[in-house]
């Protein structure tokens, strides 16, 4: 979360002009709600899977924030992404309660099953693994979120099953 505001820009994803116009209309309501930038960014991300460069431009124009401000906000929060992400972001908790209940094994099993390191997206963009801070679900230690869906009491075997069943849904 520590990246400072630089002159970097988010990646453009070649949004069609119609999508950009649609977004322009979609965020008009936020003009009336001061401070609602994060909510506007959620709208963007729900549509495009990340906050691409074009969307930062639209938000800046419509809501009146400098582009650098919008970029700075996007990069501050770990749940916003400037790059296209995977369909399933597997967020696995690495904090203490989950740790003493086998989180390391769960993470290793997910990495092995998908052939990925934490932080990486699979080539087909189906999966990404993230090691994250406490998810506030510690009674079900160790915990994994598939996007926002909670899966508790994880084991290496259960994480493999989960990945298989998510793959099944996709095909």
């Amino acid at each position: 979360m520590t990246d400072s505001v630089t002159d970097q820009k988010a990646t453009p994803v070649d949004l069609p002009a119609a999508a950009i116009e649609d977004l322009r209309t979609g965020i008009q309501a936020f003009k009336e709600d001061p401070g609602s930038l994060l909510e506007a960014l959620y709208v963007v991300q729900d549509r495009f899977g990340c906050v691409p460069r074009e969307a930062i431009e639209v938000i800046s124009e419509e809501l009146g924030y400098p582009e650098a401000h919008v970029y700075g906000v996007v990069t501050f929060y770990t749940m916003f992404y400037t790059e296209p992400q995977a369909t399933h972001i597997l967020r696995i908790c690495r904090d203490l309660s989950c740790h003493v209940n086998g989180a390391v094994g769960v993470i290793a099993a997910a990495e092995k099953k998908l052939g990925l390191h934490s932080g990486q997206c699979s080539e087909d963009r189906e999966f990404k693994i993230e090691q994250v801070s406490c998810l506030g679900q510690c009674e079900r230690q160790p915990v994994l979120l598939d996007n926002l869906a909670v899966h508790g009491s994880m084991t290496p075997a259960r994480v493999e099953e989960l990945i298989d069943s998510l793959r099944g849904e996709a095909s």
Binding site: M1, E39, L41, Y77, T78
Partner: peptide, 11 residues
């Protein structure tokens, strides 16, 4: 009363 979401930041 307005609902607002965070986006992954303990701070």
């Amino acid at each position: 009363i307005i609902l607002r979401r965070g986006a992954g930041a303990y701070i």
